[in-house]
């Protein structure tokens, strides 16, 4: 379980998270929607300990993410993260991209790492691209590679930050299909997204972020189709 408890986070004088609390159960899919600059990405970075927090607490399976004694590199093995910009490693083939972390972080044998990487690449539909360099692939394919690369670490949670926002419209579908598949398989996910249809159909709950706080959270279909907070209503009427 991921438990975010009254988290405050500032960049200099700018307070970006103003007391955010959110519990995500194992197997649950939570989508985060909201205007740009409202702190959605920052929350994911704080959960992954890429950014420190100012106050509050984040627990992942009971481990305090930001405690001094926590081994953050180790903790991140549980938390797969995919970014808006796909960040494939351009000097490695698709297979090497996915096999590297299992090999050097989890210290698997080369054969084991390659086997897992191949399986995850097939999982996201890249089984025929193993020896291709990522720069030769479309954005959608590179984004699926990023997902497979994260999955190869066998994470318990996936944090996805607007993974379709930088894609050409015709490539969005293939990536959303991959995420849908993961959701059906029971992966626990927090997805920051602008795809309202995806948020409504795939997630269990939707949280609406507004200026560093969760202004509304509830059952997915209800928040998207019948929001209670006037701020959510206003936001949704604009993105539709």
């Amino acid at each position: 379980m991921i438990s975010v408890q009254n988290v405050h986070k500032s960049f200099g004088d700018l307070e970006v998270l103003k007391g955010v609390s959110l519990d995500v159960e194992k197997g649950e899919v939570v989508s985060i929607i909201g205007g740009s600059g409202s702190g959605k990405s920052t929350l994911l970075y704080c959960i992954n300990a890429i950014e420190p927090i100012n106050s509050g607490k984040i627990l992942v399976d009971g481990v305090d993410v930001h405690a001094k004694e926590t081994n953050k590199d180790k903790l991140r093995q549980k938390l797969g993260m995919v970014f808006q910009q796909w960040n494939s490693f351009p000097h490695m083939t698709v297979l090497e991209n996915a096999a590297l972390a299992p090999r050097i972080v989890k210290k698997m044998s080369k054969e084991e790492a390659i086997e897992i990487a191949k399986k995850e690449l097939e999982h996201v539909g890249l089984g025929d691209k193993l020896d291709v360099y990522p720069t030769k692939m479309s954005g959608g394919q590179q984004q699926r590679l990023a997902i497979a690369r994260a999955l190869a670490m066998k994470p318990d949670y996936m944090l996805l930050d607007e993974v379709t926002s930088a894609l050409d419209p015709e490539l969005v579908g293939e990536v959303l299909d991959t995420l849908r598949l993961l959701a059906e398989e029971g992966m626990t996910m927090i997805c920051v997204t602008h795809e309202m249809g995806f948020a409504r159909d795939v997630s269990d709950r939707v949280a609406y972020f507004h200026q560093g706080v969760i202004a509304e959270i509830g059952e997915a279909r209800q928040v998207i189709t019948d929001p209670q907070n006037p701020l959510t209503q206003k936001f949704l009427s604009k993105v539709r």
């Binding site: 590199d73 970014f83 050097i104």
Partner: peptide, 17 residues
């Protein structure tokens, strides 16, 4: 790009790795 570093870290790599 610095995002190559954050992507590596997010996979559990140490800074040295």
């Amino acid at each position: 790009p610095t995002t190559q570093y954050s992507a590596s870290k997010s996979l559990g790599m140490t800074s040295i790795q």
